[in-house]
Amino acid sequence: MIVFDGVNKYFGDFHVLKEIDLTINKGEVVVVIGPSGSGKSTLLRCINRLETISGGSLSINGLNVADKKTDINKLRRNIGMVFQHFYLYPHKTVLENIMLAPRKVLGQSEAEAKKIALKYLEKVGIGDKANSFPSQLSGGQQQRVAIARGLAMGPEIMLFDEPTSALDPEMIGEVLDVMKALAHEGMTMVVVTHEMGFAREVADRIVFMDEGKILEEATPAEFYANPREERARLFLSRILNH
């Protein structure tokens, strides 16, 4: 479904992604971990072309993402994205935040968009906040709205870029619960995170990155029990033993 084939990416002289080969299948949950600056977020952002790749090829359902002829807006309808800092629209209510793209991109009627928005708000457990403004919500609630906003477009793929990194520890659980439920429903998910518990429990595959390269790809069981790479072993020992 998502296929990276020899993908390279530069920011000026900085080589962020080096010869990335990665295939993500339909319904799979892939968790990308690694030290900061290893290129995890960039990898994720290439998938919906928030970053353009410098070389190699990247395709989604056989469609070349980098090709200028690819209708990027059409491609993005099918890919929801959740950011570390939520990026809800502060001038719109929760409901309006969720309804905007379905109305303007999919051309849904007001009533239809509202029905769908409320359905997903219920699903993420904050149906009662429909008419609040983002600034009136806690971080965890805002992130759940952001997830509902992504889901309302009915995407095949959801991307999560460190969705819990900006949250108070108390609120991480409520966001991860929503993500777990989503994973069990068979959503294709690519998640950049430092939440090792989530990775171990939910991921079908763990991708470990360092310095722009994928060093290791394994099931959580394999990866946590016995990481092959020395760098991965070091990384795990640092974040698990404290």
Binding site: N48, L50, N73, K74, R76, R77, I79, G80, M81, F83, Y87, L88, Y89, L100, A101, K104, V105, A146, R149, G150, M153
Partner: peptide, 9 residues
């Protein structure tokens, strides 16, 4: 980025 990634032009 949030707006564009939801498919808005």
């Amino acid at each position: 980025e949030a707006a564009r990634s939801s498919g808005l032009s």
